[in-house]
Every structure is written in C-alpha cells, then in structure tokens.
Simulated assay, not measured.
Amino acid sequence: MCPVPAHQTPGVGRVSHVDARIEKVVTSGKVMLDDTEYDIESNTYVVGDDDTVIVIDPAFDAEAILKAVGEREVMAVICTDGRDGHLSAVLEVAEADEEDPAPIALHTRDRLLWRQHFRALANESEDAEFMKDLTPDLDIEDGGVFEIGDAQLEVMHTPGHTPGSICLYSEQLGVLFSGDTLHKGRPGRIGADYPELQEQLNSIGALLGPLPKETRVLPGQGDETTVGEEDSQWESWFALAQEPDES
C-alpha cells in the first residue's frame, strides 16, 4: 500500500471486486495566474479503503479534506500539477499525522512552480521562512504506479496545462483522474488562456485513445465525464486557439 517508484510498474489486471473507493471533496478559493486573481472550485479526491488512502490534489480547505479521510492513514499526497490551487492545502494534509507525515508527490517538471508557490508564501511571513527550502518528497514520472488498497494508480505525463501535469489511471476502479489537463467538455484551464494548447491537446489525444470509452473521467474542476464523451469532441477543441477570451 506504499507508492511504487517510477518505472517499476507491476502487472495490472482487472479484478472482479475492488474494496478501494473514491470520495470527492469540493473546496473553493482563490488562485493567482499572470497577476490576475481567480475564484475557483477545486475537486480533491480521497482514494482508498477502510484503513489507508491516497489524497489527490488537496486544495484550499484541509479541514474538509481531513474530515473525509477520517481515521485512515494517508499513504501519499499526489499533486497533478504544481499550480497554487493544487498546493494550497498540501502541507496540512500531508502533515496531519505529525509523527508520520505522508510523502508529497509531484512531477519533476513542475518543481519550478512548487518553488515559486512556497517562496512566495515564505516572503509573506517570517514564520514561513522554512518554506523556501521545501521540496516534494517523491519525484513522479510517466509510467510510475501508486498502490492503495487493492487498486493501482498509473501516472501518465500530460504536459500542456503545466510542464509537469499528470493524470492518474486506475484500471481496477475504471477511472481517470485528469487534474486540470482535461475538464468536462474542454481542455482544463484557469482563467481564459491555455499556456500551451497544442501540447495539451496532443497530451489529451494520446491519453484518451487507448482507454476504454466507459472510463469515468474525474477532473480537477467541475463535473465528471467519460473517456468516450471527451474523445468524441477532441478534434473540435483545436478551434479554441481562435476563441476570444471569456474571463
């Protein structure tokens, strides 16, 4: 039930019954992007069984997230990208058990965003000076696998929204945690612009193609969808580059 290091992927086979379950916690807060502040609602997912969980993208309200965790042990905290929203409650959730804090996992290519976030917090308060030297505990890469209960979460690197954006696919649970790579009905974004839309669309296309169409897609914001529903729209999204700003 511990994270499996990247590139040591065990065999994955569909099982008839899985004890692991998924709970969603919706929180709201503010994020800064290109000197503009946005109000967003963010989805945090608590994945596990009666004893242990992995927390995906703890945002804004650590108390609400830890209420969903309950008495279970947090084995890892995974951030699907390094933007402010997905880091805003990461320390409180990971360190809820002060004697045995959970490791925080982030893709190596989003370490710059991590440093920018925590150094900005450190500059705001003398009590937060320690944050300048914080680093993620686990560098996750494409093909890595996390195990929790009787389910596995496979890391899929999906650059575009950020350089280190990832999704997590669980064959056993029949779900794709898509972070802000993919939202219902369009590529994920915060604000009006897509930093690297072409790269993001290429990532989405490579992501959706091989997966079963009935796979549930659980995004970082908004409602869930399915692989089939989003795959049918993928080509139309290339026109988003010509859309006017909507923020």
Score class of each variant (00 low, 15 high):
P5T: 12
A6I: 09
H7P: 06
H7C: 15
Q8I: 13
T9G: 13
G11F: 13
G11T: 14
V12S: 15
V12M: 14
S16L: 15
H17Y: 13
H17Q: 13
R21C: 09
I22F: 03
I22H: 01
E23R: 06
E23K: 05
V26Q: 01
T27I: 08
G29C: 08
K30L: 12
K30N: 09
V31Y: 01
V31I: 13
L33W: 03
T36C: 09
E37Q: 11
S42P: 02
T44P: 02
Y45V: 14
Y45L: 15
D50L: 07
D50A: 09
D51C: 05
T52Q: 11
V53L: 01
I56D: 05
I56S: 04
D57W: 02
D57E: 04
F60I: 05
E63I: 08
A64Y: 00
A64G: 05
A64W: 01
I65M: 03
I65Q: 03
K67P: 02
A68D: 04
A68V: 13
V69A: 07
E71V: 11
V74L: 04
V74P: 00
I78G: 02
C79N: 07
T80P: 07
G82H: 04
D84C: 01
L87P: 03
L91N: 02
A94V: 11
E95K: 08
R109G: 00
R109N: 13
D110L: 05
R111T: 00
L112K: 06
R115E: 15
H117C: 15
A120T: 15
E124L: 12
S125R: 13
S125M: 12
E126F: 05
E126K: 00
A128D: 10
F130R: 02
D133Y: 11
D137R: 08
D137L: 10
L138S: 05
V145F: 03
F146T: 08
E147G: 09
E147Q: 14
E147V: 10
I148W: 00
I148H: 01
G149Q: 05
G149K: 02
Q152P: 00
Q152R: 10
L153M: 05
E154L: 13
E154M: 10
V155E: 01
H157S: 12
H161I: 01
H161Y: 15
P163G: 13
C167P: 09
L168C: 07
L168H: 05
Y169A: 11
S170A: 07
S170R: 04
Q172L: 11
V175Y: 09
F177Y: 13
G179N: 10
D180F: 11
T181W: 03
T181M: 08
T181V: 15
P187H: 00
G188T: 04
I190C: 07
I190G: 02
G191N: 05
P195D: 02
Q200H: 07
L201F: 06
L201P: 01
L201C: 03
A206M: 14
L208F: 06
P210D: 06
P212M: 15
K213E: 15
E214D: 14
T215E: 12
T215F: 14
R216W: 14
G220R: 03
D223N: 13
D223Y: 07
T226Y: 05
V227D: 00
V227I: 09
E230Q: 14
D231C: 06
D231T: 07
Q233I: 02
S236M: 11
S236F: 09
F238G: 09
D245E: 14
